[in-house]
Every structure is written in C-alpha cells, then in structure tokens.
Amino acid sequence: MDDEKVLDQAVAWRASGKNVAIATVIQTWGSSPRPVGSQLVVSDDGTFVGSVSGGCIEGAVVHEALEAIKTRAPKILEFGVTNQQAWAVGLACGGKINVRVEPLD
C-alpha cells in the first residue's frame, strides 16, 4: 500500500469514530528497509496498515502506538543494535531507526 493510501486509511478510521495513531520513520542510520517518511497507522483495535521496517519492529511500534492513543502524547522510539530491547524485537538488518509515534487528535 502506498503512503498516500496509508494516511487515507487514518482519515477513514477517524471518520468512523476510531482512535488512531500515526507512526513515522524520522531518522535512519546504516541499512534500513524503509526510507525516512515511511508511515504506519494504527487504529485503537490494533489493526494497522503501512510499514516502518521490513516487518522487524512493526509489533513493537503498534504496541507503542496503542499506548500513545491512551496517553495522547507523541513519543520517539529508537530501534537499533545499540538498544537491547530493539535487538530483541529483531532489527536484524543492523541499522538503527527512530520512529515517531503520535496520536491523531
């Protein structure tokens, strides 16, 4: 799904009364499967469209997105080989990426 359709989905979910969070790749170092600007949107039932990696960190990002919907606060997540937890979620390509997660007001 291209990025334009990803954000269209966020608009559609919002219109149907769902709470939504948007995750965006804001910085990358080394090899990373998706470029800066790539987006993923999550609805409050955990459904998501789009991608911010090759599938390595989507699970963790969706989890944080659901948190952001609850707290109403944007957050920057860091994933990479220097981060033990991120290594655990498996950014095996060896890169480092920062993802900003923000609720849609």
Binding site: L7, A10, V11, R14, I22, E102, P103, L104, D105
Partner: peptide, 8 residues
Amino acid sequence: MKATTLET
C-alpha cells in the same frame, strides 16, 4: 497530529 492537518 490534528485531524484537520491530516485532512488538509
């Protein structure tokens, strides 16, 4: 992000 920003 504000919904109005996203819609615009």
